[in-house]
């Protein structure tokens, strides 16, 4: 195995993605993600941040390159092996992507769908340990028990995203991906959600990769910042090292500074 030598949880090597042949959205990305900490990916819209994150759990199939995760190349997996890898990677979405007509607890329990036998999920007979853990997680993300039986479409944006985080944690993931988790939220709620994700990640020792538009939030909560522009990584380092010159390069122009 190529990745046997290093200690990274996820090693991305020469990742390339073209939606249309000859027009790469991701050009030769190579990254190592450690088993700890919150990594923020910043960059202008359309620069391939979402594509990068979605390649990792194969919601998008990469064109070339490899992604070593727990000793396997995610790019080559299919079928049951791919599902087994996916359940080790939680995901938090910009639009929450909850099943609106299901209750909060059932949404959280869908995080176990990769683990429990189909008949159990079908009959809503999740193992008691899973149900107990789901209640604990609803608590942990700051929703009280009365939320558990409420339907997801009755919740506010911030509450929905808390459910989304609980669902991701329910998978007992080795890695969490978050695709613009705060972009649909107001500034105060955005801070709360980032705070919650950073805290959950640290408490449970789960590394998190976050796509984020808000540079201030990225600086505040990330231990590492990756700046992307035009499908390439142009900054990779600690938040303290991120200077205005870098931001100019990443976003182009300086009017926004």
């Amino acid at each position: 195995m190529t990745g046997a030598g290093n200690s990274a949880l996820l090693s991305i090597r020469h990742l390339r993605k073209e939606y249309r042949p000859g027009q790469p959205v991701l050009k030769d990305i190579s990254l190592d993600i450690d088993a700890r900490g919150l990594t923020a990916i910043i960059g202008p819209s359309g620069t391939g941040k979402s594509t990068l994150i979605r390649c990792i759990n194969r919601l998008v199939d990469p064109t070339a390159g490899e992604m070593l995760f727990e000793g396997r190349d995610l790019a080559k997996l299919a079928g049951a092996e791919l599902r087994a890898a996916r359940r080790r990677i939680g995901m938090v979405f910009q639009e929450y992507n909850l099943v609106e007509r299901l209750s909060v607890i059932e949404n959280v329990l869908t995080g176990r769908l990769g683990y429990v036998p189909a008949w159990r999920a079908f009959l809503r007979k999740f193992p008691a340990a899973d149900v107990a853990r789901a209640f604990d997680l609803i608590d942990a993300v700051g929703l009280d028990e009365s939320f558990a039986t409420r339907r997801a479409d009755k919740l506010s944006g911030g509450q929905r995203q808390r459910v989304g985080i609980a669902r991701a944690l329910m998978q007992a993931p080795a890695l969490i991906l978050a695709d613009e988790p705060t972009s649909s939220l107001d500034p105060k709620t955005s801070v709360e959600i980032m705070e919650l994700m950073a805290k959950m990640g640290a408490e449970r020792g789960v590394p998190i990769i976050v796509n984020i538009h808000n540079v201030e939030l990225a600086r505040r909560y990330a231990s590492r910042i990756i700046g992307m522009t035009g499908g390439e990584v142009v900054y990779d380092g600690p938040p303290e090292g991120l200077a205005d010159a870098h931001l100019k390069h990443i976003y182009g122009g300086e009017e926004f500074l």
Binding site: A84, R86, F93, T110, G114, G164
Partner: peptide
């Protein structure tokens, strides 16, 4: 939501 369940490894 389908994407979310796929990402969780659901069959």
């Amino acid at each position: 939501p389908i994407e979310a369940l796929t990402a969780a490894g659901a069959p």
